[in-house]
Write a protein that binds this DNA or RNA. Structure first.
Lengths: 140, 140
DNA sequence: TGAGGAATGTAAGGATCCTGACATGAGGAG
DNA sequence: CTCCTCATGTCAGGATCCTTACATTCCTCA
């Protein structure tokens, strides 16, 4: 039996939870959740993408994304077109308000990420990125 | 701005979600969720621990753990003592049924973990563990 | 002895995420 | 053209997780 300290699945969960926790703590000052941040971020990377595409980019289901999108619409941070652009796809866009919020949130999240990596030399960070990418590919 | 591919926070989330997804998919065959598995696992490592201790070990709050524990009790996999052992702490234990279930689940999760790491030489796995541990410590 | 702190249990409410199911629109195979 | 498949949107229900709040028990310290 492997030691718990070496179980990658366990460690990944631990880091993900700690990172999420730390981010939520800081994001609370601007009234944003980590889930909402993730959607805003995806929205900035893919303006006008349908909700289903945003769901894929944030690793959740369409149904889950709807829950978060509801909150973002109510907060005036995102906007869903009334008419489909192609097929049934309704383009989602960032509002001006959403863009400003994302800028603030981005700074906060980057700070937490920096803190998480503060003791690691750049080479180690690149290596970590490579290893994690490999893990993701192996599970795909 | 960093490329998304190199954002460790993003990659950790991706891997964690993929791992969880893959595990849930396989665990469904024995009727267990990943959250439940995590609690059973913690319970095996700390027999008779109070719920609050299990919560710490699974990185969730006491309140969240209660939700999962309710399901485990209903499924007859865990048992909560009626009388406190010390203070208000109610010892939680695995039932025989729970132990059998954990054995099955453990094999399933180990298989998924192996698949995730299949292309990585042992040295890389150890380094990944080291890097992740460092990240967790930096956020603590 | 009594006040306060720390840990635990519990409850309520809300946010996020899931599966399952169904309807709709686009595009290809026959 | 019609049937089929696929992608998208939507709804319902349930599981998990969170914050906030309060009660209880033990321990420390004045």
């Amino acid at each position: 039996m492997s030691q718990l300290d070496e179980r990658i699945g366990y460690l990944v969960k631990q880091v993900q939870q700690a990172f999420r926790r730390a981010c939520e703590e800081q994001l609370r000052s601007v009234g944003l959740s980590m889930s909402q941040y993730a959607v805003l971020r995806a929205l900035a990377d893919a303006p006008g993408a349908p909700a289903a595409e945003l769901a894929r980019r944030t690793f959740v289901t369409r149904q889950s994304l709807r829950d978060v999108l509801t909150g973002l619409k109510e907060a005036g941070l995102a906007s869903v077109a009334a008419q489909p652009s192609a097929g049934r796809a309704l383009p989602v866009t960032l509002t001006d308000s959403g863009r400003l919020m994302l800028d603030q949130a981005e700074r906060i999240v980057m700070e937490v990420e920096s803190r998480m990596l503060i003791t690691l030399p750049p080479g180690d960070v690149r290596q970590l990125a490579t290893l994690l990418t490999t893990c993701a590919e192996n599970l795909a």
